[in-house]
Design a protein around this nucleic acid. Structure first.
Length: 218
DNA sequence: ATCCCGAGGG
DNA sequence: CCCTCTGGAT
């Protein structure tokens, strides 16, 4: 692939989504980033944003959330789905932050993925969004699908996709390109029904250029 | 009906 | 590796 192509794609995306920051939502401080990213699993931005003010006015700090009642938290975060598991996770995470990390969100992949409810995906987003640390690119269904359509990778294994993407983009934009691809996947390049008329990436898109015959589901 | 900015557990 | 956890959007 032409080395200029990834750069052009990045610029086209950024022109279209100028406010995109790593993670996709402006979350505020690291504690909020972490908790809201956990809540973001398998739900919509709308649900998370609806829950956000209620949750943090009641539990503004790790200490407050660590002492919270699981059922009460569950009731508040219900619109985000998986609410029982998520309540257990965010309270557990708050407790571990209190007990093992001196009350502040840890800044390493190992420490973050050690927290309940935090996997590689969430840790990646927190690192880039809250701390500006670009350690990797979280390959979710959106990233996988769009990177394939754009010919940025031919791999199907998420680990290999990630290393391909890391090689194509400078490290300081990893978190941002990650967020841009996800945002584009939710707004325009939607799985199964891509809105090609609204897409700014058609010049580089296999699906578009090859007669819309490529499977756009993952 | 089907999918979603996953993670944990068997 | 496959299952479960949940509500909301389309």
């Amino acid at each position: 692939m032409d080395v200029a192509t990834p750069c052009a794609i990045y610029r086209a995306l950024l022109r279209h989504y100028p406010d995109t920051i790593p993670g996709g939502i402006s979350y505020g401080d690291p504690f909020e980033v972490l908790i809201l990213t956990i809540l973001s699993a398998q739900t919509t931005d709308r649900a998370v944003e609806a829950v956000r003010p209620i949750l943090f006015s009641r539990y503004p700090t790790p200490a407050a959330l660590a002492a919270a009642d699981e059922e009460e938290v569950g009731e508040i975060i219900k619109p985000t789905g998986f609410y029982r598991v998520k309540a257990r996770h965010i309270i557990g995470t708050a407790r571990r932050i209190q007990e093992e990390h001196g009350g502040s969100v840890p800044r390493t992949m190992e420490a973050l993925t050690g927290l309940p409810g935090v996997g590689r995906k969430t840790a990646n987003i927190v690192l880039s969004n809250a701390f500006g640390i670009d350690e990797g690119i979280a390959v979710d269904t959106h990233v996988k699908r769009i990177a394939g359509l754009l010919g940025l990778t031919d791999e199907t294994d998420p680990v290999k996709i990630e290393s391909d993407l890391k090689a194509l983009f400078p490290q300081e934009v990893w978190g941002q390109i990650n967020a841009l691809l996800v945002q584009h996947g939710r707004a325009v390049c939607i799985a199964g029904r891509p809105r090609c008329a609204a897409c700014m990436l058609t010049p580089w898109c296999r699906y578009y250029s090859e007669g819309k015959k490529i499977v756009t589901r993952t």
